[in-house]
Amino acid sequence: MNVVPIVAISALLLFGIGLYGLWSGRNVLRWILAVGLMETGINVFLVLTGWRPGGAVPIITGAFSTRGPSPFIDPVPSALVLTSIVIGLGTTTLALALAVLHARAHGDLECGDDPENAEVLE
């Protein structure tokens, strides 16, 4: 069975749902989830770019030849996805902290425009 279309469609769906989530509301938590979905979609796509039919896990366990087609999948996208997940974790945590600040300042998570004439102290 060819897995490529299934994975590609899931990636696209995740990205699309995320995009829709951004457009369809002003709730901070909704935005955070939407961005998370978009990032996951991109990560899935990134994994897909390294895939090749019959490719093995890119860990060298025995002798192999550098000539001819590689027996492994491309390990670079996997490494990129790892990094991207870590970045996503960091930004999501930060965004959640901002959501807490928003709830403290406004009592809810509906993010409108910043009040123009509010006091600025520093």
Partner: peptide
Amino acid sequence: TGSPRGVIRYWLFSAVSGAAMLLGIAILY
């Protein structure tokens, strides 16, 4: 203290643009 709405917007812009950039890098790679 005070409203973080400006910073939340900054986060939103940079998160979406960061996602766009990552997608661009994936396509390019």
